[in-house]
Simulated scan of single mutants.
Amino acid sequence: MTRYIGILDGSNNVWGVRVPDLPGCHGGGVSPEQAIADAAFAVCEWTEARIAKHLPVPKPRALVDLLRSGEIDSASGDSAVIVRQR
């Protein structure tokens, strides 16, 4: 099972998770848990579409690499979460 780092943001009942290693891959929900679950489903769909087109699937980067890149902005409320490919 592949694990990607997702970036969780939101408040109240609007939450989102984007997966920076998979451009355009994201999930959402009314709670952080639902957004993470939706993102896991999106990761599966995203990777299956790439495989069907005979395109490579990017390997997940380490959390430290995402932090160094500035893609996670904890000052604005971003949080890193694990998104498992189901």
Rank of each mutant, 00 (worst) to 15 (best):
Thr2Ser: 11
Thr2Asn: 09
Arg3Thr: 12
Tyr4Gly: 04
Tyr4Leu: 04
Ile5Glu: 01
Ile5Thr: 13
Ile7Pro: 06
Ile7Ala: 10
Ile7Cys: 10
Leu8Val: 08
Asp9Arg: 05
Gly10Ser: 13
Ser11Gln: 14
Asn12Arg: 15
Asn12Ala: 15
Asn13Met: 09
Val14Gln: 11
Trp15Tyr: 13
Gly16Val: 10
Gly16Asp: 05
Gly16Trp: 06
Val17Leu: 06
Val17Gly: 05
Val19His: 09
Val19Leu: 14
Pro20Ala: 00
Pro20Glu: 00
Asp21Leu: 06
Asp21Met: 09
Gly24Tyr: 06
Gly27Cys: 01
Gly27Trp: 01
Gly28Trp: 06
Gly28Val: 07
Gly28Gln: 13
Gly29Lys: 10
Val30Cys: 00
Val30Phe: 01
Glu33Gly: 12
Ile36Asn: 02
Ile36Glu: 02
Ala37Glu: 15
Asp38Arg: 04
Ala39Ile: 09
Phe41Gln: 12
Phe41Met: 10
Ala42Glu: 07
Val43Ser: 14
Cys44Asn: 09
Cys44Val: 10
Glu45Asp: 15
Trp46Ile: 03
Thr47His: 05
Glu48Asp: 15
Ile51Asn: 00
Ile51Lys: 08
Ile51Glu: 08
Ala52Ile: 08
Ala52Thr: 10
Ala52His: 09
His54Gln: 11
His54Trp: 07
Leu55Gly: 02
Leu55His: 03
Pro56Leu: 06
Pro58Thr: 03
Lys59Asn: 06
Lys59Cys: 04
Pro60Leu: 13
Arg61Leu: 11
Ala62Tyr: 03
Ala62Gln: 09
Ala62Leu: 10
Ala62Asn: 07
Leu63Phe: 12
Leu63Met: 14
Val64Lys: 15
Leu66Asn: 04
Leu66Val: 03
Ser69Glu: 04
Gly70Arg: 02
Gly70Pro: 03
Glu71Cys: 05
Ile72Asn: 02
Gly77Pro: 05
Gly77Ala: 03
Ala80Arg: 11
Val81Thr: 08
Ile82Trp: 04
Ile82Ala: 03
Arg84Ser: 11
Gln85Ser: 13
Gln85Ala: 15
Arg86Phe: 11
Arg86Val: 12
